[in-house]
């Protein structure tokens, strides 16, 4: 699973800290998601897509 979180975060001019605050998670979680080390829960994925006003599959894509 890969994601474009970093791209969308940059498009919305948000820092990792700001995004973490909006999502009510730690900055480490945002870093881990961006570097594909952690797969977020469905709830967090929905929150992210809602914030960026896009579909989940636009942020998260299955590599297979």
């Amino acid at each position: 699973m890969k994601n474009k979180l970093k791209v969308f975060r940059a498009m919305h001019d948000l820092t990792q800290e700001q995004l973490a605050e909006k999502m009510e998670v730690s900055r480490q979680t945002i870093i881990a998601i961006e570097s594909n080390k952690y797969l977020p829960s469905l709830g967090l994925a929905f929150k992210l897509s809602k914030l960026f006003k896009i579909k989940i599959e636009e942020v998260f894509q299955d590599e297979n």
Binding site: E24, V25, T29, P40, L44
Partner: peptide
Amino acid sequence: ITIDEREKT
């Protein structure tokens, strides 16, 4: 204190 989902995992 924010204990987020990654921390829980």
